[in-house]
């Protein structure tokens, strides 16, 4: 699939804090909204002059194609996200996208259950995927596991509930939901589902994805991982975001991924 390396300067519609240092920025970008699918990403610049110099990649959180709106959920960690946090309704934001070569491929098997496993800012693209699956077929079976160190860092529980998805929450300190890690909850979910068709979709910090990938390989359940590495260009030309695959190939995360199958990636 060719990438859409189109640059847009679009108006911000809203920019709201959802939990401490995490915000949802919504903008009016009908061309992007029309093309965006779960797994795609946007390369954002808030650069004033040459600082910060490079764009930074963000996953897509919500898409409203009728209204031509897209949103990104981000945590404030660096110069770009600090710049994004300052954007107000009516300000413009500069983005390129939607980018990405291989994106989430929903399991089309009859009666399949889609198991989302997200951590941190890996959760938003899985919310997008869940909503897309539900809007295609309201009866779609979705399980959603969200992990965080502490309850104050859990994202999107209410948004999912609104969409009719009850997320299973895990916290490492037991402050909310199940005490432990997402893999502990995933074992429970997979055991409940037994031999029925299941696909796991995972996005989060690398150690988490590694653990989820290992578990899925161990129990022989297909798993799609949205891999995150630094992507200076996002268009497949700078060759910096390479991922080593188990078959010996070294490929670009941005255009050969960012979604890879468990077992495909050499950790």
């Amino acid at each position: 699939m060719p990438v859409s390396a189109q640059q847009y300067l679009v108006p911000v519609i809203s920019n709201d804090e959802i939990i401490a240092d995490h915000r949802v920025l919504t903008c009016y970008a009908p061309e992007v909204a029309a093309l965006a699918r779960p797994g795609h990403f946007l390369n954002v610049s808030v650069g004033d002059g040459y600082d910060p110099f490079l764009r930074k990649p963000f996953s897509i959180y919500t898409v409203n194609r009728e209204r031509g709106e897209i949103s990104m959920l981000f945590s404030i960690v660096g110069a770009t996200t600090r710049g994004m946090a300052k954007k107000r309704a009516g300000d413009e934001i500069d983005l390129v996208g939607p980018l990405g070569g291989k994106i989430f491929q929903p399991d089309t098997r009859e009666g399949a259950t889609h198991v989302m496993v997200g951590g941190g800012y890996g959760v938003p693209p899985l919310v997008f995927l869940s909503k897309e699956l539900l809007s295609a077929a309201a009866s779609t079976n979705i399980e959603f596991i969200i992990g965080a160190r502490h309850k104050d860092l859990l994202l999107c529980e209410a948004e999912l509930a609104e969409a009719g998805v009850t997320a299973r929450m895990t916290t490492e300190d037991g402050s909310h939901g199940m005490r432990g890690r997402v893999t502990d909850a995933l074992r429970v979910v997979l055991a409940e589902l037994g031999a029925s068709p299941v696909t796991v979709y995972c996005c989060g910090p690398t150690p988490m994805m590694h653990a989820v990938s290992d578990l899925c390989l161990e129990v022989d359940v297909p798993c799609q991982l949205s891999v995150e590495v630094g992507m200076p260009c996002g268009m497949g030309v700078c060759m910096a975001c390479v991922v080593d695959l188990a078959d010996g190939r070294r490929v670009r995360c941005c255009t050969d991924g960012p979604v890879f199958a468990a077992g495909e990636v050499k950790w």
Partner: peptide, 11 residues
């Protein structure tokens, strides 16, 4: 990797 890092007005 890392193969590219950002510096002042450049990489």
């Amino acid at each position: 990797t890392p193969r590219i890092v950002e510096t002042s007005s450049g990489i």
